[in-house]
Amino acid sequence: MEESLYITNKKDLCFWEEKYRRLYYGNEFCSHLMPVPGELEEILNFAEGKNTGFSLVTGYAAEGDLQKYEALFKILEKRRPDSEVVINDWGILELCRDFPMQRLLGRLLSKQKKCMRILDIVGKLPPRAARHFQEISLNENFIGFLMRNGIKRVEMDNSLQGYRITAAGDLSFSLYMPYAYLTTTRLCPSNICNQEKGAGLRIPLSCKRTCRSAECLRLYSAQMPVDLLLKGNTVFYESGKVNLLYPNRQLDRIVFQPVIPL
């Protein structure tokens, strides 16, 4: 099993250990937190120094973000054409087609059932329905599409109710631990405190990156079996033990997140 480190902030390079074979860097949830070109160059220098593989993690992109991504891809093409790009927006896949980097299907697009409320009912459901919540939404047509588009690896979360990987063609899988993402928004809660009360939730035009300097908020409700972790614009939960229901050699990479990836 290959182990990789996923960080979103260069100060977290301190978590690097020799056991890691690959460095994931970038951000899935907020384009304001994507590295600028100079920062990416620094990270690539670090990866070269450690003689390790590199994966650029991309997120969903509004119209105004596309140029930023293109600039990063140009740097990768020039310096590390052997690197991977984690795709979390089909528009980014379109943009990436002209570049030589290997493409991966990110966890925002791999469509796994991951709500912790499933834990409350999964034991009471008929077997076929329970199984539904333990499979990734990869039907044969979807797998065919991925293969035709040169996507050979799928990133997935370590969901609490357990999961199985069956009949997934020649795909390989990576597992993100210990933080699974539950939901994300462009109406960033870190930002609404700067707005007038009752003004409604707006898409922020600018960002002060307050989420970077704050710890997460732990949210709870009697209706939820585990606490939620709200950081920046995204809600996560912790899942530290591998919940794969049956061993499968297609799962061959662990992506370790030492801190919540925002």
Binding site: C115, R117, T183, S190, C193, T210, C211, S213, A214, E215, L217, R218, L219, Y220, S221, Q223, M224, D227, L228
Partner: peptide
């Protein structure tokens, strides 16, 4: 579930 009236259990770090 997304509309539950969530409570904040703990808060650490700088107060944003």
């Amino acid at each position: 579930a997304c509309c539950f009236n969530y409570k904040i259990r703990e808060k650490r770090g700088r107060d944003v």
